[in-house]
Design a protein around this nucleic acid. Structure first.
Lengths: 250, 250
DNA sequence: GGTTCGATATACTCATACAAATTAAATTTC
DNA sequence: GAAATTTAATTTGTATGAGTATATCGAACC
């Protein structure tokens, strides 16, 4: 036991695109397992030696993976006590990487609802701040994003990326780092919306006019209009979303 | 070179309270250095060997520290390219641990302002949701928190902890995990408010009536009143805060 | 029954060796 | 001479084994 590790080659893990270091791959694997409920809060992990052997990685790599998850509030580890999953309330569910893990698989519907509710709270206010504080450059970014959205349409990845860029630009234009930090969370919700709606083949409404209304309000520095138009955009998006979430899985 | 490591004892790092593992202590040290601008975005770190030797820790421990900071979006590392500080926009500034590092030292005033603005966006909405969805148990928690606040006063650590518990309970009562994840961010702002005001010796106003108004609205399930009373609480707190921030450092 | 104390399991730290990956330079080729 | 290709060098990444520190559990002891 110990001479079985001699190949020494091909130690990479494929993912959707590109490859990850081992520790990162393990972190993703464990993180996903926790998010999907394989390991529940309070559950105790096996020891480092067992775990690393079972996963066919070194203790070093495994430990670094665990460090990552601890940094995200998912795990806790103490000598003798072991490594255990923390209560959900301690997880940094807004962490960009964690959101990526969630949305790589089939994300929890309740959490999508929560994320949408958060959008509803954040984005109208953000739009108002953006209307007040945006620079010319930031407006240019929104202009281009909107153009790209129109050119590619929301059915293409390029179009969806442009959609995200638009919302991201608004948050950046608030000139508030704390709000801007929520960009990835909002982005995850944005991307999921169109993905979901598209999968359901129900594109009942062209979202572009809504976006343009927001854009024009921000361009005109009309704070009140920015807020209300963004709220309206979200209200409609949420309605579509709720409709999609109601139905059983395709 | 190599026989100098023989003592083998007393390898702990003291902090305000308790002790940290080495990797965590290094992570805190590096994280704080980045937050205070010692290492700026784009800056390249020294190599792992140099760094770990300079800090008198093993490469393993140093690397685990770096993994933590990477997990929080502050660093990036690639073979040959080295380890460098990411742009501020990539930092997870809402991460609880990161907030703790910030507020251990003298936090950036601009960021405090941002955090307060975030509170202004989040908490009124949260109060409204809480008024609609709170359970009896959650209301009990608020009740006790308010009692503790009244008993201890905001000048004591116990009182301030109760203040945080109150706001935390409201976020929990939204039954929205995404909103609840912002508890630590809001909490940091809450705690800094009273600390700051107290340091300045300007306690012009008893914040308890404001809190009671919010509490009663939530207890009565009056969503509109919950929102407006929370907004009012924050408006007043912000006014005090701005006043304190205007003045030069004591 | 509570308290102290010791054994034990577990994560933590260290040191060293080697592998992989990426950048940069050197070389070839057109 | 410029572009593509190969080579080399540097840095992080992974593996392994030995030893340390610490929290928990159980037993002995008030």
């Amino acid at each position: 036991m110990g001479s079985e590790r001699k190949e020494g080659t091909e130690r990479r893990f494929a993912t959707e695109e590109g490859s990850l270091r081992i520790h990162q791959a393990i972190a993703r694997q464990l993180g996903t397992a926790i998010l999907t409920g394989v390991h529940k809060p309070g559950d105790l992990f096996e020891g480092e030696i067992e775990a690393s052997e079972r996963l066919h990685v070194s203790r070093t790599a495994y430990r670094e993976a665990v460090r990552i998850l601890i940094a995200k509030g998912m795990l806790e580890s103490r000598p003798k006590a072991g490594t255990r999953v923390l209560p959900r309330s301690r997880w940094n569910v807004l962490d960009p990487e964690m959101l990526a893990w969630m949305f790589a698989g089939e994300p929890d519907r309740a959490f999508i609802r929560d994320l949408f509710e958060l959008r509803g709270v954040i984005e109208p206010a953000a739009a108002e701040f953006a209307a007040r504080r945006r620079t010319g450059e930031q407006l240019d970014i929104m202009t281009r994003a909107l153009e790209d959205m129109e050119r590619h349409g929301l059915s293409t990845p390029d179009g969806r990326a442009a959609d995200q860029r638009f919302h991201h630009a608004i948050l950046a234009a608030t000139h508030n780092d704390a709000l801007a930090a929520l960009a990835s969370s909002v982005g995850a919700a944005v991307s999921w919306t169109t993905t979901f709606k598209h999968r359901k083949k129900l594109l009942p409404r062209d979202p572009l006019p809504d976006h343009k209304a927001v854009y024009q309000a921000i361009a005109a520095r009309d704070t009140a209009a920015a807020r209300t138009s963004m709220a309206e955009l979200l209200r409609l998006a949420l309605a579509d979303m709720d409709l999609a979430l109601m139905e059983p899985e395709a």
